[in-house]
Design a protein around this nucleic acid. Structure first.
Lengths: 110, 110
DNA sequence: TAGATGTATCATGCATTGCAAGGTACCTGA
DNA sequence: TCAGGTACCTTGCAATGCATGATACATCTA
């Protein structure tokens, strides 16, 4: 299981990418994150993130009826959201390279 | 530059790996992290991490003289440290796979 | 001799963020 | 009727990176 500390700073970008792929709502996002292999991400995690995304205008919401429960809030990316997502991808690549560089170097003592 | 939030939970494992490769001290670790591409990691970050590693007995220290300044505290991994490092590697792989799975899937709308 | 620079250690308090826990409310099926 | 799934949200805690500041040794230069 991925420790919660390692998820910090990751989930926001991942949720943006999920919304980019497909207009969707918070409850479904939590299911999708699990399917992608992030493990079970608490709703107490997801809702605050989405509120933040709305406040900073990276996503916009549309309320629609559901045929299996309460109304859903569907989210889609704004332009700012697309920019932010691209920045996240760049940062992720930087981190991935740094860590893989560190961990594939072998033992310097040898 | 990698945002600080994305480093949370990463640096501890990375510092363990640096120490595994080579017995070294905090000041040098900060230089090495920069060389590996993590950017400039503040000393206010590194020293607390190393104190934590010592308290949880993942590393042990040896004080030695330096010919270019104050004494250095050289760190080496304990057995617990090796175990912890391996756990970190597993967790990192999990995270890397999840994120790459998410970001290589293309647009589900298409 | 004095001061700047580089080396080397550590402590304090803040900001951010994931999460546990709890709350509300709708719909379906047993 | 009531349990379970769907769907939203809030509050307060814990962990961690970092800015800031302090201490101190060694070397070089004015």
């Amino acid at each position: 299981m991925i420790p919660t500390q390692m998820l910090k700073g990751m989930l926001e970008g991942c949720i943006l990418e999920i919304i980019r792929k497909q207009e969707t709502y918070a409850y479904e996002i939590s299911k999708l994150l699990e399917e992608y292999g992030f493990g079970e991400i608490s709703e107490g995690t997801i809702y605050p993130i989405i509120l933040r995304l709305q406040k900073s205008e990276l996503v916009k919401a549309t309320v629609r009826d559901s045929n299996s429960g309460p109304k859903r809030k569907y989210y889609r990316l704004t332009e700012k959201g697309t920019v932010s997502l691209n920045e996240f991808k760049d940062n992720w690549n930087e981190l991935e390279h740094a860590i893989n560089h560190l961990f594939t170097g072998g033992n310097e003592d040898a």
